[in-house]
């Protein structure tokens, strides 16, 4: 496994590092138990909606730090609407790629940025708190990377069924028992979905 020169550059000299005092918006994603956590702070010009400053904190590996650094670089100076278009694929491309097992780091960084933007918009009445539905679950599953190939589990057609009823999430995954990443994927799904207050229970089924 090797990192690109670009990743190493951003890892050794990360941009936009540090805690921001009085940010206009902030978001934290990930958890120490999963090995990585990112916090992003935004300073937004209220009239032009331009992201004037952005800072991050990261607990995690080299690619975690590098992706947070590049995502903040990409967002700086953009309007909120422009920054909303930044995806984990863009971050990965800007870093000249990541090893497949590290792709989830770029998801975490891009995701944290999007949550910080969304938090700003909600706080400033620019949008409503979205309703939780089956679509929300599918959107979250698009952020779960299968580490072997570095692609998300929806694109890879690993999700056979998604159900949501009365606070209970039901997901059928097509990952066999001998797969070394089965538990990683299930854990990530739980982490992503359990942050929603609407979710009371998560059941993940595998082929027997």
């Amino acid at each position: 496994m090797q990192y690109s020169e670009k990743v190493l550059q951003h890892f050794m000299n990360p941009q936009n590092v540090g805690k921001m005092e009085h940010p206009d918006s902030t978001a934290t994603e990930g958890s120490p138990a999963c090995g990585d956590q990112v916090t992003i702070y935004l300073k937004v010009d209220e009239a032009s909606k331009v992201i004037e400053d952005v800072k991050f904190l990261s607990y995690g590996c080299a690619s975690n730090i590098a992706t947070a650094s590049i995502v903040t670089e990409m967002a700086k100076g953009k309007t909120l609407d422009e920054a909303k278009k930044i995806t984990w694929r863009d971050a990965m491309e800007a870093l000249d790629g990541l090893p497949p097992v590290k792709a989830h780091c770029s998801v975490l960084a891009a995701d944290t940025l999007q949550t910080a933007i969304s938090n700003y918009e909600i706080a400033h009445g620019l949008k409503e708190v979205p309703n939780f539905s089956k679509e929300t679950i599918i959107e979250e599953l698009k952020k779960i990377i299968y580490p072997q190939v570095g692609e998300d589990i929806i694109t890879l057609k690993m999700v056979k069924y998604v159900g949501f009823d009365n606070g209970e999430v039901l997901i059928d995954l097509n990952i066999m028992s001998f797969d070394q990443y089965r538990e990683n994927v299930a854990e990530e799904i739980r982490e992503h979905l359990s942050k929603y207050p609407e979710v009371k229970d998560i059941q993940i089924n595998f082929p027997s």
Partner: peptide, 30 residues
């Protein structure tokens, strides 16, 4: 505490020092 082993090991490596870490991030199986 509060920092991750792969980052530490890689930064030490850039200084010419080879050590090992038990971090999940440094293992192929995560």
């Amino acid at each position: 505490d509060y920092i991750e082993g792969e980052s530490m090991a890689m930064m030490l490596d850039r200084k010419g020092i080879t050590v090992a870490t038990g971090s999940a991030c440094a293992s192929q199986g995560l």
